[in-house]
Amino acid sequence: MNNSIKSSLITPTYNWPEALELLLISLKKQTVFPDEVIIADDGSREETTKLIERFQKDFPVPLIQVRHEDNGNQKPKIMNKAIAKASGDYIIEIDGDIIMHPNFIKDHLKYAEKGLYLFGSRVNIQESILNSIFKNKTTYFHLFSKGIQRRTRTLRIPFFMNNPKIYDKRSSKLRGCNMSFWKEDFIKVNGFNESLVGWGIDDSELIQRLHNIGVKGKRLKNVGIAYHIYHKIQDRSNIEINNRIEKETTENKITFIEKGINQYL
């Protein structure tokens, strides 16, 4: 593992403290810690702030809340604000409904490489066990755990990373809930596109711009294991607008967007 990398873990959240609590518990159980954790809070109620304050008392690394007022889904904006404040050279991004395998951070740092970003998959936690995991604060899952889908992805097999696949083009397997990149590359393309409206496309549109400047992808296979907590499908009423923006980014090889992280640097 490259111990010289200074890293920041960034996660967005919005009014789901039960999921955020499990995320933070799984972070405390990491074999390797990031240098800091930043919660990008898209305007949650006081309950979330109180949860973060409780964890800050004995968290192993600085735990920082970056928050703005609730004005609908503004994930690109709050993520830009959080990453602008990040002191790490390397950004590990997960969603606020992710539970991490104990070696999650270790794996992202081990396979980090200049000129590349990393992306991993996820194991799906089904709705049927939500009450149980929230009640019991469950963060450990395995191949035979009840209530999970894509269970072979629970197997951590670093051997598969001896010859990792490098992607010249954005992969359809990309999931923003489990990826990492260099902050300097993120700044080169001006971060997340705040012209995107509501749910969806923000991560893949960002990654497309990284490809447009020559950054390539490396897929994490059976390492960097993440568990995604079930939730209802979010409002996708603006997805056509966002798809059009992403298509323009791809076809016109756009590298730098107007409304991005430069507003907060």
Rank of each mutant, 00 (worst) to 15 (best):
I64W: 01
H228D: 02
N136V: 00
K173L: 14
Q149C: 08
N136Q: 06
F186E: 04
K165T: 14
P76F: 07
K188C: 02
N2F: 03
E93I: 13
S171I: 08
S8L: 11
K247L: 15
I52R: 11
F192P: 01
F55A: 12
G217R: 02
P164A: 13
H68W: 00
N252W: 06
R209E: 10
G176P: 08
E46L: 09
N252Y: 11
T31S: 12
T154P: 10
Q208N: 15
F144I: 13
W182C: 09
H142E: 14
T250K: 15
Y230H: 12
I52F: 08
K28A: 07
S172E: 13
N242P: 04
T11H: 09
N178Q: 03
N136A: 00
G72L: 04
E93T: 07
N71S: 04
N71K: 06
R244A: 12
K77C: 14
T11Q: 09
N238C: 03
M100F: 06
E18I: 09
I25L: 13
E246N: 15
S7Y: 10
E18L: 14
P60E: 08
N131L: 06
N124S: 09
E240P: 02
K259R: 05
N242E: 04
E184R: 11
P34K: 08
F256W: 05
S7F: 09
L130Y: 10
F192E: 01
G260H: 01
G214N: 06
I157K: 15
N2G: 02
A226V: 01
V66S: 05
E93Y: 09
K146C: 07
G198F: 02
S237A: 02
F159S: 07
K188M: 03
S180N: 04
H231T: 10
K259H: 03
K169G: 08
I98L: 01
L63S: 07
R45K: 15
P164N: 13
L24A: 13
Q208K: 15
E127N: 14
E205A: 14
I225C: 00
R156Y: 03
A40Q: 04
G224N: 00
N193E: 04
L196F: 02
